[in-house]
Amino acid sequence: MNNKLFHTVAEKHNPPRPLLKNCVMSFIFGGVICAFGQCISLFYLYFFDFSEETVGDPTVATLILITMLLTGFGVYDKIAQIAGAGTMVPVTGFGNAVIASAIEHKSEGYVLGVGGNIFKLAGSVILFGVFASFVIALIKLILT
């Protein structure tokens, strides 16, 4: 069998990803999510006792709450098909990864299904985030 021929022919017919459209869409959706986050931040700044430094936490929590509703009603994955990284990179994507795993594995029971699989997708983010932060914090402590 001629693998080289297969690869040249396959390369010719591989439909290109619509790069420009994907970028524009992820810019718009990502931007809208962040701008919406800013609106929530301003809301918390005005009406609750949060300063600019601490307002990030309630904003993130609110966004994840909205993500839960969108994920639960099965809308989030439809938006994500259009938005691409625009819905993945904001913290809503992290929330969606956790919530989607939790909902999907509900059918295997709460302990081993939901409990065992809830970080199936988001686990890598937490693992590498924590490990990299640990190393960086150590380096910074040693250097200063």
């Binding site: 936490d57 929590a61 993500t67 994920t71 929330g95 939790a102 999907e104 939901v114 809830i118």
Partner: peptide
């Protein structure tokens, strides 16, 4: 400082699992 994101994701994940069915 990260607890907001992770805790809300876990809590809402559990609530979501209680409330919703996969679609």
């Amino acid at each position: 400082l990260t607890s907001a994101g992770i805790t809300s994701a876990i809590v809402f994940g559990m609530i979501g699992a209680l409330l919703f069915k996969p679609k």
